[in-house]
Design a protein around this nucleic acid. Structure first.
Length: 198
DNA sequence: ATTTTCAAT
């Protein structure tokens, strides 16, 4: 009997959801977070597809029911009970960068989770709350790699987290000024992480 | 017009 590869049951994001939420041209009032986990073994990394998925924040008119995407993600990571004797690399692609409170929670997590390396790629910088710069610096100082998504990450997410229905080879459509916007944001982030004022 | 910012008039 042949035991073929199990069919992928993992849900994918629809194309419009991805474009609406990750584009530089929009400022949606919600946040999507795509994540994946690799097991690090020596020089190699092994993708753990069972931990590859996406989520979004919980939005509600009731303030106590709201939850930022990062906190949902932290709960989800805790539920995995990753082996503390092993080493993992967790990569997040998030449409808005973490707010100061979420950055704090991520920092706490990193302090308690020496077996996890965290990389965060953000599509846009979320600057609604004062202190967002300090939050991003704290995350960086706690060992997280914080970077803006470039064309490469947008395209990677498009290929890996988005449902292309029939057309598997549909290429990432991009949007106006993606590369320029991404570079601008990367420079701003670099300034923030170096504690420079604009 | 460089600001649609993880809900609120």
């Amino acid at each position: 009997m042949e035991a073929g590869p199990a069919p992928e049951a993992r849900p994918l994001m629809d194309e419009q959801t991805f474009l609406d939420n990750f584009s530089h041209l929009n400022c949606p009032r919600k946040t999507y977070l795509c994540y994946e986990v690799e097991l690090l073994v020596g020089e190699n990394s092994i993708p753990l597809d069972e931990y590859k998925d996406f989520l979004h924040n919980e939005s509600s008119y009731k303030i106590w029911e709201r939850c930022h995407a990062e906190l949902i993600f932290l709960e989800r990571m805790a539920s995995w009970n990753l082996d503390t004797e092993l080493r993992y690399r967790v990569t997040c692609f998030i449409s808005w960068s973490p707010c100061p409170d979420c950055a704090d929670e991520l920092v706490k997590f990193l302090r308690e989770s020496r077996h996890v390396n965290l990389r965060i790629f953000a599509a846009r910088i979320y600057e609604r709350f004062p202190g967002y710069e300090e939050g991003l610096r704290a995350l960086n100082a706690a060992g997280a790699e914080v970077a803006m998504m470039t064309f490469q990450e947008f395209e990677y997410c498009w290929k890996n987290f988005v449902d292309h229905q029939q057309d598997e080879d549909e290429s990432f459509p991009s949007w106006d000024n993606l590369v320029v916007r991404s570079e601008e944001l990367s420079q701003r982030l670099a300034g923030i992480l170096q504690n420079q004022e604009d």
